Amino acid sequence: MNNETILLVDDEPEIIKLMQIYMVQERFRLLVANSGEQALEIVRKEKVDLVVLDMMMPGRNGIETCLEIREHSEMPIIFLSAKGQEIDKITGLSVGADDYVTKPFSPLELIARIKSQLRRYSKYASSQSANDTIEIDGLTINSATHEVIVEGKPVKLTPREFAILELLANNRGIVFSVEHLYEKVWKDTFFEANNTVMVHIRKIREKIEADPRKPTYIKTVWGVGYKI
């Protein structure tokens, strides 16, 4: 029996009614939001295991909502969208979604994708649960609690920032290209002109380096990538 909580974010009553039927059959606990603002409020107050998120909504759209959720959580996010072009899917996945389903869709297929993402996330969470602590010259990284401490002071990183830092720290001395970092952390195929990794590296340096312009932890290997 499933007991996970699914948040469905959509402003179409027909889709909500349809998915309520299938969610009940699958024994999922279903929460419903009709807007991005309402979805964020629910995520802040409730334990949500997966979000099914309409990409196109009035007010705060799905992309903005996804980006906001990703600042605080790695829970699976599945986009629903009437846009089926490849560029739309790339956009959705690049902002942090784990899957993309085009409307009109099969409820059974969506349920299958939900179960697949929940299984994948459960394995990922289990692999991250070991109480490993990495210490590098005043920098402490706790993989179990996702805590980062620099010179005795706690530093708050987003889940993506933490994943990048943890990956580099676990492979100290190894140079990771931008493409390799993206594919490892985002679990997606890298595409040209994507500066997402560089932006995240800059933000990490601003938080952990005494002087981000002269980093002592995350080093740039020009023309190759980054390493610790």
Rank of each mutant, 00 (worst) to 15 (best):
A82I: 11
D211G: 03
L40F: 08
V197R: 03
P215W: 05
N131M: 11
V48A: 04
N170I: 08
E151F: 10
K156I: 15
K47L: 03
Y100A: 03
L157T: 03
Q25E: 15
K187G: 02
K207F: 09
A82K: 09
R113N: 05
R120T: 11
D137Y: 10
T220R: 09
L139H: 08
R113F: 09
E4W: 00
T220Y: 04
R27S: 13
I78P: 04
V178M: 06
E135L: 10
L168I: 15
N171Y: 15
E151Y: 08
K103F: 06
I208C: 03
F191A: 07
I174T: 14
F28Y: 14
K227C: 10
R160G: 10
E166S: 13
Y124Q: 10
P58M: 08
I149Y: 00
E4I: 02
V155Q: 05
L139P: 06
E46L: 05
A33P: 00
K227G: 08
D211Y: 10
L50H: 05
Y182D: 10
L53A: 00
A33R: 00
V178N: 10
Y226R: 02
G223H: 04
N61Q: 07
T65L: 06
E64N: 06
N3I: 06
K214Q: 11
K83Q: 13
T5W: 02
V197P: 02
K184F: 10
L181A: 09
F190W: 14
D11F: 08
M75S: 01
E12T: 12
K207T: 09
Q85C: 03
S35K: 05
N170R: 15
Q25S: 13
Y100P: 00
Q25N: 14
Y22W: 11
Y22S: 07
K219T: 07
I218W: 05
Q25K: 15
Y217P: 00
I69Q: 01
R172M: 13
G173Y: 11
I114F: 01
V101N: 02
L31H: 00
L157A: 06
V51I: 12
L30M: 12
E192R: 13
N171C: 13
T220S: 11
R44I: 04
E14L: 11
I174G: 00
P212A: 09
L168G: 06
E74M: 09
I78S: 02
E14V: 09
V178L: 08
F176N: 03
N195V: 10
K17P: 01
K115I: 09
R120K: 15
I228F: 13
E74Q: 08
V185T: 11
L18M: 15
R113C: 06
K184R: 15
E37C: 01
D10G: 06
Q38W: 02
N2P: 14
N34F: 02
L118E: 01
K207C: 08
I77D: 02
M56W: 07
N3T: 11
M57Y: 08
I201G: 01
S116H: 09
S106N: 15
I141Q: 05
I15Q: 06
R202N: 12
I78D: 03
S81F: 07
R44A: 12
I149W: 02
D88N: 12
I21Y: 11
W222H: 12
Y182Q: 07
G62M: 07
N194Q: 11
Q85G: 13
L80A: 01
K214V: 12
V148Y: 03
M56D: 05
R172K: 15
M19L: 15
D10M: 08
I149S: 04
I201H: 01
A125V: 15
T145W: 07
I78H: 00
A193D: 13
